[in-house]
Amino acid sequence: MDTLIGRQTEVLGDVRFSGGLHVDGKIKGKVLTSSEKSSSLSVSESGAIEGDVRVPHIVLNGTVIGDVHASEKITLAAKARVIGNVYYKIIEMEGGAQVNGQLVHEANPSLAQPLDLASGGSEFDELSEARRVKGFTNG
């Protein structure tokens, strides 16, 4: 790890880093990294983050209050607590880990976009037509 935030340290504001970051203390702000696919974040059992997290590789055994975006892999250890959604490409979750939000798989995060069925737009029409052609109709 390149950077350590110790148990007695509280950071107020966003943290932007490259390489590796280990958190034993508290961060109140976003945790972001450059677009390096090798950057990693580890949060120990005593570590806590209040804000969104965007890091390719994450090992979490502490608490995150906010959405977590792991563009490569996230490991949720037994003491991990997430209050927010977890967006991931690969996930590993130990027994005891808790997520109070949604788990959202993103095979290619830059291309993933939610389907807006409420707008009645062309996405809905194309999906309905594809299902009809393939025989997937509801009556």
Results as ranks from 00 to 15, higher is better:
residue 2 D to H: 10
residue 2 D to Y: 09
residue 7 R to T: 13
residue 7 R to I: 14
residue 9 T to H: 14
residue 10 E to P: 03
residue 12 L to H: 11
residue 13 G to D: 10
residue 13 G to Y: 10
residue 15 V to Q: 10
residue 15 V to G: 01
residue 16 R to E: 12
residue 19 G to S: 09
residue 23 V to T: 06
residue 24 D to G: 00
residue 26 K to N: 04
residue 26 K to G: 06
residue 27 I to G: 03
residue 27 I to M: 12
residue 29 G to F: 04
residue 31 V to C: 10
residue 35 S to E: 15
residue 36 E to I: 02
residue 36 E to S: 15
residue 37 K to D: 14
residue 38 S to P: 01
residue 38 S to E: 13
residue 40 S to N: 07
residue 44 S to I: 05
residue 44 S to A: 09
residue 45 E to F: 02
residue 46 S to M: 02
residue 47 G to L: 06
residue 48 A to G: 13
residue 48 A to P: 02
residue 48 A to R: 11
residue 50 E to M: 09
residue 50 E to V: 11
residue 60 L to E: 00
residue 61 N to D: 15
residue 62 G to Y: 07
residue 62 G to C: 03
residue 65 I to K: 14
residue 66 G to I: 05
residue 68 V to Y: 05
residue 71 S to L: 07
residue 73 K to C: 09
residue 74 I to Y: 07
residue 80 A to V: 01
residue 82 V to A: 03
residue 82 V to N: 06
residue 84 G to D: 02
residue 84 G to S: 11
residue 85 N to R: 03
residue 87 Y to P: 04
residue 87 Y to F: 15
residue 87 Y to M: 09
residue 89 K to Q: 11
residue 90 I to G: 05
residue 91 I to F: 07
residue 92 E to I: 03
residue 96 G to H: 06
residue 96 G to W: 07
residue 96 G to S: 10
residue 97 A to G: 02
residue 98 Q to R: 15
residue 99 V to T: 05
residue 100 N to Y: 11
residue 101 G to Q: 06
residue 101 G to M: 06
residue 104 V to L: 02
residue 105 H to N: 12
residue 107 A to H: 07
residue 108 N to G: 02
residue 109 P to G: 02
residue 109 P to K: 04
residue 111 L to H: 06
residue 111 L to D: 10
residue 111 L to T: 07
residue 114 P to C: 01
residue 114 P to F: 01
residue 117 L to T: 13
residue 117 L to G: 02
residue 117 L to I: 15
residue 119 S to Y: 01
residue 121 G to C: 08
residue 123 E to L: 08
residue 125 D to S: 08
residue 126 E to A: 15
residue 126 E to Q: 10
residue 126 E to D: 08
residue 126 E to M: 13
residue 128 S to C: 09
residue 134 K to C: 03
residue 138 N to G: 08
residue 138 N to P: 00
